[in-house]
Simulated assay, not measured.
Amino acid sequence: MLWYQIVFLAVIQGLTEFLPISSSAHLILPSQLLNWPDQGLAFDVAVHVGTLIAIVGYFRKDIAQIIFAWCVSIKDKQSTPNSRLAWWICLATLPACVFGLLFDDFISTHLRSLEVIAYTTIGFGVLLWLSDRYGTSHKTEQDLALKSVLLIGLAQALALIPGTSRSGITMTAARFLGFGRESAARFSFLLSIPLILAAGGLKSVELVSSNLAVDWGSILMGVILSAISAYLCIYLFLKWLNTIGFFPFFVYRLILGGVLLLIVYL
Rank of each mutant, 00 (worst) to 15 (best):
I263L: 14
S167I: 02
T170N: 05
A159N: 06
F68N: 15
A42I: 01
A54E: 00
H110S: 14
I89S: 09
A145M: 12
H26P: 01
A227I: 03
L94R: 08
V214G: 01
M171C: 11
W240D: 14
T164M: 08
Q142D: 15
L256S: 04
R253D: 02
I193V: 13
N211G: 10
L158F: 14
G258A: 05
T16H: 09
S165Y: 02
S22E: 01
G222A: 07
A46N: 00
I122H: 03
S131V: 07
H138S: 15
L154A: 13
G178P: 01
S204Y: 12
L91W: 10
G163I: 00
G222P: 04
F103K: 12
G125K: 03
V47P: 00
Q142P: 01
A42P: 05
C97N: 09
L144N: 02
F59H: 05
Y252H: 04
F68M: 13
W70F: 15
C233P: 11
G217D: 07
S23H: 03
L254N: 03
L128K: 05
R60T: 10
L34R: 07
R175K: 12
S22Q: 01
A25N: 04
F250V: 01
I74H: 07
K239S: 12
L130Q: 06
Y119P: 08
D105K: 15
L202A: 10
A54V: 02
V49I: 14
L9I: 14
S73N: 09
S22H: 00
L197P: 09
M1S: 13
A199D: 04
Y231S: 12
F249W: 03
A184M: 03
T172A: 09
L154E: 09
S192T: 10
L144G: 05
N82L: 14
E182V: 15
Q39R: 14
G50L: 02
S188I: 04
N35P: 12
L144T: 02
R253V: 03
A227W: 00
L236A: 15
F250H: 02
T120Y: 11
A69I: 00
F59M: 06
L34S: 08
L33R: 10
A199W: 00
A42V: 01
K139F: 08
V149C: 08
S192Q: 11
G40C: 04
G153A: 11
L220F: 15
P162K: 01
F18A: 02
L27W: 06
Q78N: 13
A69S: 07
L207D: 00
